[in-house]
């Protein structure tokens, strides 16, 4: 049994236009502290899977448990990072970060201290009073991350968290976020379209088939650098020896999907 357990999960959307089967027979166990990446063709049900784990959608068939308890009871253990930062333009950086605390009536001294420490650590302290439109894309994404982390979730769900950023920012924010998650020992499930990003950040990559999403392949990632040690930062991982091999393998799995159709 893992930290997060998913068994026999099926999910369908019902609309007037008809029924859309989004997920089919998903079985998955995620260890505590693991970084898991999910890749798959567009529309295969990745966001649906994350929404189910987050408890934003109700499960129809199958079970999802976190530390043995159903997700409905564990919502406060889960942090969710969306594709866009969704900072409220009318709130200052720190008030944006307080949003979750306000909602959960958790504005305690300890939380304020934690927030201040995170703002300093991630280079946003000088910008805590300014409105989001004065922040760069990377800063906004970091602010959104602090907003999630200040709630101290045990499991972090990331839905294409970097796709709104330009390539440069994307690499550095990925490094930042990776470092933060590892330092805090968080379990993370990340969806991405970027195979390189999946390999460089995660310990395991799950490849889904096109709709309805099933698990097509699980790939354990072990990277070694020139010196024989694993890479420290995701941005270095691209020069790891096995990188190209993993890239090829995942690429083939994703493409192979088209052949079968």
């Amino acid at each position: 049994m893992g930290f997060l357990d998913i068994s026999q999960l099926n999910y369908s959307y019902h609309t007037k236009a008809g029924e859309t089967k989004a997920l089919s027979g998903i079985n998955l166990a995620v260890r505590e502290g693991e970084f898991l990446a999910i890749v798959g063709p567009s529309g295969c049900g990745k966001s649906t899977l994350l929404n189910l784990i987050a408890g934003l959608l109700k499960t129809q068939e199958g079970n999802i448990t976190i530390e043995g308890a159903p997700v409905a009871e564990s919502r406060d253990k889960i942090g969710y990072m969306l594709q866009k930062d969704h900072l409220m333009e009318w709130r200052s950086t720190e008030d944006n970060i307080r949003l979750g605390l306000e909602i959960n009536k958790m504005e305690t001294k300890e939380k304020e201290a934690l927030m201040e420490q995170m703002l300093k650590q991630y280079g946003l302290y000088e910008f805590r009073k300014v409105k989001p439109k004065e922040l760069s894309g990377g800063m906004r994404q970091r602010a959104a991350l602090i907003r999630t982390l200040v709630m101290e979730p045990e499991l972090l769900l990331l839905d294409e968290p970097f796709s709104a950023l330009d390539y440069q920012t994307r690499l550095s924010v990925a490094d930042d976020i990776y470092a933060i998650l590892k330092a805090e020992g968080k379990t993370a499930v990340m969806i991405t379209h970027d195979i390189a990003e999946a390999i460089s950040m995660s310990e395991r990559v799950i490849v889904l088939t096109s709709r309805p999403g099933r698990i097509r392949k699980e790939i354990q990632v072990h990277l070694t650098m020139e010196d024989g040690k694993p890479p420290v930062k995701p941005s270095q991982a691209r020069s790891a020896r096995e990188f190209a091999v993993y890239y090829q393998q995942i690429w083939k799995e994703l493409m192979g999907d088209d052949d079968e159709r």
Partner: peptide, 11 residues
């Protein structure tokens, strides 16, 4: 998605 954010924060 702004509403979804609120829901993910437990609101």
């Amino acid at each position: 998605d702004k509403l979804k954010l609120i829901y993910t924060l437990g609101g």
